[in-house]
Design a protein around this nucleic acid. Structure first.
Lengths: 157, 157
DNA sequence: GTTGACCTTACCACAGTGGGAAGGTTCACA
DNA sequence: TGTGAACCTTCCCACTGTGGTAAGGTCAAC
């Protein structure tokens, strides 16, 4: 089976299949006399595993570990679960950060008339780093606060 | 003012300040006789703007546009608002994708005993690309479904 | 035999940030 | 006046994960 066929069967681009081989995620492929790579069902299986893991957002480095556990008959599912849980936590953290940004920016955009004048609270906030001053239900009168609370996201850049 | 002082005052690393200059986000800095860059309040102001925009997740390319609007007295806040809204939509999309991944993986991890045996639904799912079969409140009896519904995220990789 | 689809390797690109090397400057302190 | 620490300069390389593209070889159908 060609790399192109393996690609269509696995949903991994030929480019990436070669890349995965070059970084050792995939074993060196069998070669035909022509030099063409030749893939079998075991390879397809492995490519599928990698792809599913990528779809769940695992980094290639973590996938390397997962592949190791997959192939280890004496593995402990506790190890797998620990990796999965760590990854879930990371995904949730990143999602939270993105949502914080979206919330902050949405409230800025909501405060902007968009009526064609130059006057713009979004620009003002970017200048000053402060959130829109008023009309915040849960903010004390006229108080301003940092756009994004300086916790994790971008705190020390 | 040195690049180091500008860095501390703006929260942008010296490395990044130079980078922003090299790609034209910052104008070429004034130089002292020694060749050291010299920054004034206008530069600090601009660095702050960039940093706040970065904190909101804007790409450097979009920041370039925002800086242009910032410096344009005849700008329309509708333009700014449009950029902001587009960015909010992107942030939300990415956050949603991450949450989908997290949800899928969390349910896999929940289905894993983690009792030290090799047996592991997470690994099985990565092999087959299917979600855990049972115990899904809103899933018909024994039905299995793709781990991540093939919509946008990673559909065509 | 020709043609088109496919394969090979090898390099470059992206975004955004960090690391480090090799060398020059500034400034305080002895 | 010398010295050392802390700073600055430019230049190159690294990372992640993916895509592009170029120059060339192969395969299969017609």
């Amino acid at each position: 089976m060609n790399i192109g066929q393996a690609s269509r069967a696995s949903g991994v681009s030929p480019k990436m299949i070669r890349h995965y081989e070059s970084i050792g995620l995939m074993p060196p492929a069998q070669r035909r006399d022509s030099g063409y790579r030749d893939y079998g069902t075991a390879d397809l299986h492995r490519l599928g595993f990698i792809r599913h893991a990528r779809d769940l957002g695992f980094s290639l480095d973590r996938i390397r570990v997962l592949l190791g556990l997959w192939g280890d008959p004496g593995r402990s599912n506790a190890d797998v679960k620990a990796i999965a849980n760590a990854h879930v936590a990371e995904l949730e953290l990143r999602a939270r950060q993105l949502n914080e940004m979206a919330d902050a920016l949405r409230s800025l955009a909501d405060a902007c008339d968009g009526d064609g004048r130059p006057d713009c609270p979004i620009i003002t906030s970017l200048e000053t780093g402060m959130a829109v001053p008023a009309c915040h239900p849960d903010t004390p009168e006229g108080a301003t606060e940092p756009l994004i609370p300086r916790t994790k996201a971008g705190a020390d850049r």
